[in-house]
Design a protein around this nucleic acid. Structure first.
Lengths: 202, 202
DNA sequence: CGTGAGTTTGACCGTTTGGTCAAATCACAT
DNA sequence: ATGTGATTTGACCAAACGGTCAAACTCACG
């Protein structure tokens, strides 16, 4: 196992390659569906060499999820209580949609984990996510009370943003089966704009 | 392997038990994550006995998906071109949400399959689903042209229904982590009602 | 160059997996 | 009751799996 002093250039390169390969394999097959050999081959390393950097399969998975959880919540974190309410929410939706476009593998990694009952991130869900959501929910309720946006159930409003945006990453094959050559996001962007404008304009 | 003459009472009972057990295990773990032993034990059969009724793991999975695909598309099929447009769409949304409530395991089976690239149902997606969607899409466009409902991208309108309703089944753990004791569907129902009313009222 | 830490690997191990098979048991029509 | 086909099972197998280990190689630095 490599020392956790300042990493050498080789450690940096290989760790990055492994995380990249892990992301590919885990997001496409789920945790149990992914094999260490597959990750090793995708990373261009021998299996023992791979396990030299991450002692086990779960370690790779954990490293990915830990790294992901933060970036995943960022778009919501950035929703600013001092901004114009409707603008802030629309911007949040746009950021979230952008994440589905830019990080579809990360989205599917997450989806795989949650569909199967989130056995490995239950705690993060009930703590990190719950805390952030409750904070932002209060903000949404204040905006509603002030008549800045229409009154809707704030939790379900957030659910709608998550599901509508992540759908384009998670259900990509289905979306493309319907749309054919058309770029999903070309249509999604104005559609969601319209949807939330009509839903939330007081 | 049992003859495919008229099934005996034992065949009926065991086939049903196996499909029930398969649904539990596949929906909770995905195809690769599910093991034959697990299904056998859940069905209360020995492994060889299970394989006497379904010759392989893929056969069980296929049987489930084939059976599912039809019921899954039914809510959309029922959308009636002779009905009142807005009412028809709202009823479709309600039926779809009801399916998430009544058949969450089926929804997760589907989700698992699609998130992982739908390797086993690619054809059904590009044919059965695509055909039905294109037919109903024409109907939606006619309603829009007639000014009965607001103009939005019809494909993305359908995507929104799918994602918003299935989210409550597929991301159940996450939803419950946020809502706590509150019944997800108590809030979902009026939320979606409001959302589609505001989106589609001309 | 030499040397020690960092890196890589072939060979291997125990377990789990999907699946087989012959033999035993059971259900039921005659 | 009995014979025949349907059902059930313990024992087994080959492949795939996650992971180990000692030995070999490579790199950076004095």
């Amino acid at each position: 196992m490599p020392k956790d002093r300042t990493p050498t250039r080789i450690q940096k390169k290989n760790r990055a390659a492994i995380l990249e390969a892990s992301l590919n394999v885990f997001s496409a097959n789920g945790f149990r569906g992914a094999t260490v050999d597959q990750i090793a081959s995708e990373a261009g390393l021998s299996k023992p060499n791979l396990l030299y950097y991450f002692p086990s399969k779960v370690d790779m998975h954990n490293a990915l999820l830990a790294q992901l959880m933060d970036t995943w919540l960022d778009p919501l974190r950035e929703m600013d209580e001092d901004g114009e309410p409707l603008t802030e929410i629309m911007a949040y939706v746009r950021r979230k949609l952008q994440m589905s476009r830019d990080f579809p593998r990360e989205s599917r990694l997450f989806a795989n984990e949650i569909v199967q009952g989130a056995p490995r991130i239950h705690d993060a869900l009930n703590h990190d996510l719950k805390t952030l959501v409750d904070e932002k929910t209060k903000l949404l309720e204040r905006w509603m009370a002030d008549g800045k946006i229409a009154r809707v159930h704030p939790y379900h409003l957030l659910f709608s943003v998550w599901s509508l945006t992540q759908h384009y990453a998670d259900f990509d094959v289905q979306v493309r089966a319907i749309l054919g050559d058309e770029d999903p996001f070309d249509g999604a962007d104005p559609f969601l704009e319209t949807l939330y404008l009509r839903l939330l304009t007081p």
